[in-house]
């Protein structure tokens, strides 16, 4: 990041290749389609480029990057909502699942899609990016307590979804099948359900 601020020509490519997959996943789980997620990713990078002077040496990069991504997502959501209220819907083209996404990815995507916006964002940052609770709080201009609460509620919700496979199966993801009938919720640590 410091090299990027000093205009090292290789820095943008390095940063983009390093952070884009995680950022894309963040938008993929918080946006409507793959195409939209790609657009948001590009918008985020251009914003990062314009705002690079606001990163201070010694500060953590991820919360800084995701704070920008968080606002790009919010702006896009508001823009989409505004346009949706003005435009008549046309036949939507379903987004085909990527060749890489298998059964697990599809089911997990549909599970995460059942979460409210804020919870989905927090769980994506925690699980996809691997940020700490404190970093997520910084990125979302929230408090550690609020992030923990959102994560807890998201876990509870996901537990419910996983515990009711018929609902998930019929509404969201036909491919999601329970692999065993045990009622035990398994692990309860912060990292996993």
């Amino acid at each position: 990041m410091r090299l990027y601020q000093q205009a090292d020509p290789s820095a943008p490519a390095t940063l983009v290749s390093l952070l884009s997959p995680q950022l894309l996943r963040f938008f993929r789980f918080n946006a409507a389609s793959r195409e939209q997620a790609e657009d948001l990713l590009q918008e985020t990078w251009l914003k990062i480029h314009r705002m690079r002077h606001t990163w201070r040496s010694g500060e953590r990069v991820l919360p800084w990057v995701y704070a920008i991504a968080h606002h790009v997502r919010i702006d896009s959501y508001r823009r989409t909502r505004r346009l949706a209220s003005r435009e008549a819907p046309i036949d939507s083209v379903p987004d085909p699942p990527s060749a890489q996404s298998g059964l697990d990815a599809l089911s997990f995507e549909s599970m995460v899609a059942t979460l409210p916006d804020g919870q989905r964002e927090v769980i994506t940052m925690l699980k996809s990016v691997g940020m700490t609770v404190e970093e997520v709080a910084l990125a979302t201009s929230s408090t550690v307590g609020a992030v923990k609460l959102k994560a807890h509620r998201a876990y509870e919700r996901l537990r419910e979804v996983i515990g009711a496979p018929s609902r998930v199966k019929s509404k969201e993801a036909p491919a999601a099948k329970p692999k065993s009938a045990s009622a035990s919720p398994g692990r309860h640590k912060d990292g996993a359900l």
């Binding site: 884009s20 997959p21 894309l24 996943r25 993929r28 790609e38 990713l41 990527s98 890489q100 996404s101 298998g102 697990d104 990815a105 089911s107 997990f108 995507e109 769980i123 699980k127 996809s128 996901l158 537990r159 996983i162 329970p178 692999k179 065993s180 919720p185 398994g186 692990r187 990292g191 996993a192 359900l193």
Partner: peptide, 15 residues
């Protein structure tokens, strides 16, 4: 089935 970490790892996407 409940390990979110494993599920995240199984959903790789590249721009």
């Amino acid at each position: 089935d409940l390990d979110l970490d494993r599920l995240w790892q199984s959903a790789p996407e590249s721009p």
